[in-house]
Design a protein around this nucleic acid. Structure first.
Lengths: 167, 167
DNA sequence: CTAAAATGATTCACTTGTTGAATGATTCTG
DNA sequence: CAGAATCATTCAACAAGTGAATCATTTTAG
């Protein structure tokens, strides 16, 4: 009717959403076969990189709320993958660490992630994959989706409190 | 420990998930300001392209289950954006069409989608954006994420029924 | 040093989005 | 015409996630 060229642009964002959903769904399938959720995987990865984290800081780095972390760690602890030990320095919080089993699971998970990536990028050549990664990487950092979710961003918590008072 | 190069590859899929989630969230924000959900937007877009669709075929193209389509259309009908008229050929199903208001909303939505896309791709040059679209496009079609969600795929329903009997 | 504020973990009630099974009306098949 | 299939609908159930309230502990201020 009014637009002679509906295919020009304006579908990249849509493709990004679709492919992102596909990637997430496939990854979820794969982790589910290991008895893990994607959130579980995120926790293991984070604790592998930063042992001794408290639930609060884990929540921050995960972009989650503390009350959500509780059942997450509960389940991992029950299955013997993560251990809660009270911090001797500050007995309010735990120091979360991977158990030997947890470390093993993390290893398995890395393999899964690699196969997942390989499958997803199979239609592209090595060069194209590298190009894609470079482009996505730039988008991610430009949009402040840093390596982990909004890293520290201690502003957030403050803001939340302040606006909480204001409303 | 065992891997000397943790940054080699294997994060493209992760980036894709993250950026996809970001794109979806931003789009949801924008549509919410119009009083629409992303699902609403999908329905309007589909009915704009294919008027007279039944709820069943709409569900198929949306990748949703029919019972989910009911409240979706209910809400759009209540707001006067979509009309249900009984098919004279087959009085079991409706023919769904956009009202004048619905068509207007679809127009607004197209503008929103364009601004959304522009904002998302702002960090890239025109060339790079085109490159990205090309790569994503190839990934999408290679993974059978065709323009719309799994197009017809009448196999799906059959399979579901068959495996339902088997289990 | 002690009272008040802040912080970490936890619980709980609640919302939201989604699903599968059962139902009624209509149409198709043999 | 009788039975199977199909469309729309309702409903109960479910998972994920959130915010508010609570308790123990630590920090801050007077």
């Amino acid at each position: 009717m009014d637009s002679p060229d509906p295919s020009r642009s304006k579908r990249t964002a849509f493709l990004l959403s679709q492919l992102g959903a596909l990637a997430s769904a496939r990854f979820a399938e794969r982790t589910r076969e290991l008895g893990l959720t994607p959130s579980d995987a995120g926790v293991l990865r984070l604790l592998g990189r930063t042992p001794g984290l408290s639930q609060r800081s884990l929540a921050d780095r995960l972009g989650a709320v503390p009350s959500r972390v509780v059942p997450l760690i509960d389940s991992l602890e029950t299955r013997g993958l993560v251990a809660r030990v009270r911090s001797r320095a500050d007995r309010r919080n735990y120091e979360l660490r991977l158990t030997a089993e947890g470390t093993k699971a993390l290893g398995t998970l890395r393999g899964v992630a690699e196969r997942h990536e390989a499958e997803l990028l199979a239609p592209l050549t090595r060069e194209e994959s590298a190009q894609l990664e470079s482009l996505l990487s730039r988008l991610a950092s430009a949009h402040a989706l840093d390596t982990e979710l909004h890293r520290d961003m201690s502003v957030d918590r403050t803001t939340r409190r302040v606006t909480g008072d204001a409303s």
